[in-house]
Design a protein around this nucleic acid. Structure first.
Lengths: 187, 187
DNA sequence: ACCTGAACACCGTTCAAGT
DNA sequence: ACCTGAACACCGTTCAAGT
């Protein structure tokens, strides 16, 4: 079993960013956890922006793989949406963590351009997938309307996670998602 | 005209936090903008936590005054809600800034306890006000249900602002709020 | 009462030097 | 190929010293 240092750095850093944000990520603290010196991090990721960018890209890839799997494993759009909100729920369940790109979105103005691009790409992937799901279960919607409501769903779910994480109460997240569903925002 | 240094610090710091977050706020940068040395900030606010806490408390007070005014100036719950979302819209319109407590909520794990308390208080004030509005225009709702939906509205609006700010597009915010209204999440 | 310079332990980054 | 120590300009904080 070879433990790739680069992969270890990414795994540890992802957790740190999901709890403390991009600005809260410290190379020295990260290095200590990985078991190398902080200067060594720069060998694998020349700048903090390179690391942040790699984290966001990987996060988006993993998320897209999961979302594609959801649609492959079932024909029920209701289950797809349930699976979607489950991602955000799981982050909270895991040490009250946030969506990597959700927490970074709040730091948008402080983000290096290469990280911003990846945060934007994550949003695009989410909106695209939700938009496809909406087209399936509400075929009367036009492409623009689907896109529009997809963005609203994404924003609402990110907001639910943000608020629930502050409350430190998973029940708040569940109840908020339920309120969205009852209102008809979620299919 | 006496310019109170303490007030100047708070005004400049509020803007900085609304764009870069609590972690992004630098005492040295703040001091430069105010025209004093960074060590002098500590005379008015012993620690960064004291400043952050004062900012959030003031922000909540100002917000509550505005919200109370809304209900005094009109009898139309639709206008109240319009006025509510307008606060978040105005922040974006002002150099793409965020709600002070929304951006700080994302940094929740990095916040000193005295700041967390004030961020929580802001959420409480918002949920309380929204809950009262809901009780007025949907009297069939129970107190718990009003509270619940109020929290959902608050979370959704914060999320809309977070996403629209990343997009740098006020139209995204407007369209998302409209989608909430059409779905029936907003009265 | 209000401000400052200097020091402290932190931060990301660079780089010459090690293996 | 991968890691390190030392230096750099940053950070919040403290404190003795100034007015």
């Amino acid at each position: 079993m070879t433990t790739d240092t680069r992969e270890t750095i990414m795994a540890v850093a992802r957790k740190m960013v999901q709890t403390r944000g991009y600005n809260g990520l410290s190379f020295r603290e990260l290095a200590k956890e990985v078991g190398i010196k902080s200067a060594s991090i720069h060998y694998h990721f020349p700048t903090k922006g390179d690391l942040g960018s790699a984290l966001a890209r990987r996060y988006t890839e993993d998320g897209l793989a999961y979302l594609s799997g959801l649609r492959a494993d079932s024909d029920d759009p209701q289950r797809w949406i349930k699976g979607y909100t489950e991602i955000f729920r799981m982050a909270l369940l895991n040490d009250n963590r946030m969506c990597l790109c959700g927490i970074m979105a709040a730091e948008y103005d402080d983000l290096p351009p290469e990280v911003r691009v990846e945060v934007d790409a994550f949003t695009d992937v989410n909106v695209q997938w939700l938009s496809e799901v909406l087209s399936t279960c509400r075929p009367e919607l036009g492409a623009d309307q689907s896109q529009q409501q997809a963005l609203a769903i994404y924003a609402a779910v990110e907001g639910a996670q943000l608020v629930a994480r502050g409350r430190g109460d998973l029940g708040v997240f569940d109840a908020t998602i339920e309120a969205y569903r009852v209102a008809g925002l979620l299919p």
